[in-house]
Design a protein around this nucleic acid. Structure first.
Lengths: 173, 173
DNA sequence: CTTATTGCGGATAAATAATATCCATGATAT
DNA sequence: ATATCATGGATATTATTTATCCGCAATAAG
């Protein structure tokens, strides 16, 4: 079982955007450069996040990405599901319905007990992710990271952030 | 994020072995046929489980697989880790150490907050799997499955189980 | 209106992992 | 001796992940 590397990248990007001044945006190229990631691949994840209404995108020059809502209202689960997809990690292939001795499909009304148990565990995983907000990640970063790294990030973001304010030129459809 | 199909197969196999008479074994071919799975691929998972001391294997004619300990002492986590490997699903690529503004590696003494949060969620997942025992899965199956399926399984197992008792000819190394 | 910048979406290629198969070997009950 | 069965390595096949590229639409600025 593996999570894609895109999850880590997405959370890092979200944390950077959370620390922008209100309403400002950052272009994808800056996010990629800051994290040393391939711009073309990061774009895929950014698009997924903006499709999930977690990020907002502003086209045109001075465009870029920003958070669609306050960091307290974005959970790690939101980000993980946007990047990885919402299907559970355990995909029941209904092995119980295979082999000799299989009954007609309508005989399997009750869910497979193995599936139930596996999904129960996954629910616990999701619950922890859901109660961990992006704001906590940002607070932890500010408190624990090396002051030099924090300073560099502030300077970098200051150089690249775009001047859009909270009011949209046109609501993104 | 996805679990391999082998996990489902492994748990089904474990549940079947749990219902054998004490000390009896079942050959891999019978397990594969019963579940409609490819014998050569299932073998891989069976070997992993026997390597993890969850199953025991008996070579030779009348050989096969059986549980290495009582179903109450085998958790779903044991099985999942044996099949999927023990590494966590979230592999931190230390993105924070990349890009411009990266510091010398020794500057990162505190663990990455994102990694900590992701592993905390995974710990919750593992905890639920650890407290779910194979015996519960078997009990649920006996109680909820279609009586015809249960009867078929009993008959099938009865035809294929091997007569070994609890005493080993030689302890497996 | 033109131009430069930026995100969007699709197509595609490369790398990696999961799935599946085969074969030679060793153990063992009959 | 022989047939049965697990072991372990090698290898093919398929799916998924990662990465790149290009034409398109939107938009701010001149």
């Amino acid at each position: 079982m593996k999570l894609s590397e895109g999850v880590e990248a997405a959370i890092h990007c979200a944390a950077v955007l959370a620390r922008l001044e209100d309403g400002r945006a950052l272009p994808a190229s800056a996010l990629a450069e800051l994290h040393g990631l391939s711009p073309s691949y990061l774009l895929k994840h950014l698009q997924a996040l903006s499709g999930a209404k977690i990020f907002e995108s502003l086209p045109g020059p001075n465009g870029g990405y920003r958070l669609a809502r306050a960091p307290e209202r974005i959970s790690l689960l939101d980000i993980v599901l946007a990047v990885e997809g919402a299907e559970p990690a355990f995909r029941c292939a209904e092995i119980r319905q295979r082999g000799p001795g299989a009954l007609e499909p309508t005989a399997y009304v009750k869910p497979c007990g193995i599936k139930v148990a596996m999904l129960r565990a996954e629910k616990a995983w999701r619950a922890v992710l859901a109660e961990t907000k992006l704001s906590e990640i940002v607070a932890g970063y500010q408190a624990e990271a090396d002051p030099r790294a924090v300073a560099f990030n502030c300077a970098f973001v200051g150089r690249h952030q775009r001047p859009q304010g909270r009011s949209f030129p046109k609501a993104p459809k």
